[in-house]
Structures are given as C-alpha cells and as structure tokens.
C-alpha cells in the first residue's frame, strides 16, 4: 500500500477521535493517525512503554534515545504528560480508562474477531500488548489493507489464524472501505475513493450489509 493510501486511511481513522479521549495507537498505519488528531480535542495518547500524554515526533537532531513510543521511535511529550512502568501502563488499560485503540490486523471476521499476532509456522512476532488493548479498550478500530499481498480477502467469515480477541473490533478501515461491526453484523458505511460497493463485495469474504452506505468519501 502506498504512502498516500496509508495517510488517507489514517486521516479517516482520526475522525473517530473525539474530545478528551485517551487513545493508544499501534505500530504501522495507526501511528500515522496522531498527525491528524486536532490539538483542540485535548486527546491524551497512551503508550505501552509508559507515557501518558505522548506528543509528535521531535525535530531532527532533537531525538532522545530514552523517550520513544512502543515501536522504539523517538517522540516528544505534551504538557501534563507522565511516565510510569509497564505494569501501570496496562493497569490503565485493564481498568477501562482507554477510550480507543487503533491497531493493525492480519485477519478480521465479520463478527469482529481480530487475528494479528501469529501466522503459525511462518511469522510469530508475538502479541505484545495487542490482546490487552483489543480486549479492554472501549472502542477498537482496525486499520489494514483490504486484501493480502496475493489478493486474498482479509475480512473473512471466520478467522483462520489464532485470535487476538474475540468479537473485539468495532470498526474496520481499509483503502477500500469503512465498516462497522454491530451485533455481530458487518455494515458498510463508506466507500473509499476509487472503489465501488462491488469492488468491496468482491474482495470481502465476510457477509456485508450494504443498506447503510453513507456514500463515497470526499476526495481532497
């Protein structure tokens, strides 16, 4: 997926962020979402490695090896930020303070099951904090490519890969579509620029309700 497309998805995801939310952004496209959250929303970004109130990337030359996001890249902090250990970072998550988590996935089912930490026998990165976050955040948005590199659907009837969370995803955003999962049903909300409802149905294995499409996303 090209940089432009990744940015388009991130920009769309940022529109789900509302005033005062505590938000955790995963690695990959989710990291880009931070660039599109207006400062006027007073959003507090949380990281697994122990920052509440993470800011944007530092200017070149101002990086600090001891101030980074969970992916290991340099960040800054906002006024009012705090540092804490990893146990507390996840205590906040388990206790239910996290309003929104935005993460990537390998597969998502029509019921909102998410698989994103292991391809048995092939790639086993480990779950990191994904299970904690996906199970405990109040809202979970998955950002990913609509299909695999080989063109196979990633939004499937049943996940074939080991799960990260059962029925955890509230929304799915790809380069083709914005969907929500409600009462076990997958509902198409928006068609992304350059695609049609048919394109989406042809590349989605899970059953999709297309009765509530809000229309095409406006291209800039």
């Amino acid at each position: 997926m090209g940089a432009e497309t990744r940015r388009l998805i991130a920009e769309r995801a940022a529109r789900e962020v509302t005033y005062g939310m505590m938000v955790n952004l995963g690695i990959g496209i989710p990291t880009l979402v931070a660039d599109y959250i207006p400062t006027s929303l007073d959003v507090v970004l949380h990281t697994e490695n122990g920052i509440l109130g993470m800011g944007g990337s530092p200017a070149p030359g101002y990086e600090d090896g001891n101030l980074s996001n969970a992916g290991g890249y340099p960040v800054t902090i906002q006024p009012g930020a705090s540092f804490f250990d990893s146990a507390e970072a996840f205590g906040m998550v388990r206790r239910g303070y996290l309003d929104l988590t935005i993460l990537g996935a390998l597969e998502v089912s029509g019921k909102g099951d998410i698989a994103n930490w292991i391809v048995p026998g092939k790639r086993v990165p480990g779950m990191g904090g994904a299970i904690d976050l996906a199970q405990k955040a109040k809202k979970v948005i998955v950002l990913m490519s609509h299909t695999t590199r080989e063109g196979y659907p990633k939004i499937v009837q049943e996940c074939t890969l080991p799960l990260t969370v059962k029925e955890g995803a509230h929304m799915i955003m790809t380069e083709r579509a914005v969907m929500k999962v409600e009462r076990g049903e997958l509902i198409l909300l928006e068609v992304m620029p350059g695609y049609s409802i048919e394109d989406i149905l042809n590349t989605t294995e899970a059953k999709v309700n297309v009765d509530h499409v809000r229309g095409q996303m406006i291209e800039e």
């Binding site: 697994e48 250990d85 990893s86 146990a87 970072a89 996840f90 205590g91 998550v93 388990r94 026998g121 790639r123 086993v124 990165p125 480990g126 779950m127 990191g128 904090g129 994904a130 299970i131 904690d132």
Partner: peptide, 25 residues
Amino acid sequence: AGKQMHRGELNVHFYPQGTLAEKIR
C-alpha cells in the same frame, strides 16, 4: 529470535504484555 524458534533452538513462551509485566511485579 524467530529463526531460532522455528529451527527449534529457542523455546519461546509468549504472554500478553500487561500480563507479563504483572507476573514480574
């Protein structure tokens, strides 16, 4: 680490990050 795990040279036990932190605590 992944290569050694798949070759059977490294035994890896995974835990969710928050659970691992809390087990250590």
